[in-house]
Amino acid sequence: MINVPATQNTEVIKAYEPDSKTMLGFWVYIMTDCVLFASLFAVYAVLHKNTFGGPSGRDLFSPSYVLVETLILLTSSFTCGLAMLAAARGARKSVLTWFGATFLLGFSFLVMEVTEFSKLVRDGDSWHRSGFLSSYFTLVGTHGLHITIGLLWIAVLMTKISRGNMDANMIRKMTLLSLFWHFLDIIWIFIFTIVYMLGVIGV
């Protein structure tokens, strides 16, 4: 718990308004990342029927497994928001707790994804198998790579928070991290729907 005088607090808040330059810059980065994912979605949409005699999404995907993954990632997005609310109150312990929860949930999501990937590769359905699987691994793998980077970021930030105090600079970093993490959950909505749910109904 840090006690900042009211006047100083408002100055800090003013300096990091959401429309400050750093926020806008990071927002522009996230939007360009959306364009990257859009191109991968376009590749998947074009190639997803080219199974080359191999298995289709309907044969490979387990909807209940993906539902669990989705709910885990969604919950981690929520706990990340709770960490930001705790940061706004200046409650350092709750910030660490909620970021810790976010990290664990994100990590279990990543473990589930890697397990799914390694099962596919073991069964001979790797990215070599068909155009469908190449585009599937590229799209979902790129999301997984972002999750990995996000987890590293959370770990580094948690170490810094537990050592130093939560000044305005730290809160700004946390805000950027939470933007990134919510963005990953938003990308996952479309992976869940387009890759998995449409794959399960076999469209």
Partner: peptide
């Protein structure tokens, strides 16, 4: 309780509940 971006506990809980609802429906 508000962060600089205008977030409240209510907004996160609402967003979370609605997202779960739409995911399960789909």
């Amino acid at each position: 309780d508000r962060t600089r971006s205008g977030a409240t506990l209510r907004s996160y809980v609402t967003g979370f509940a609605l997202s779960i609802y739409f995911t399960l429906t789909a």
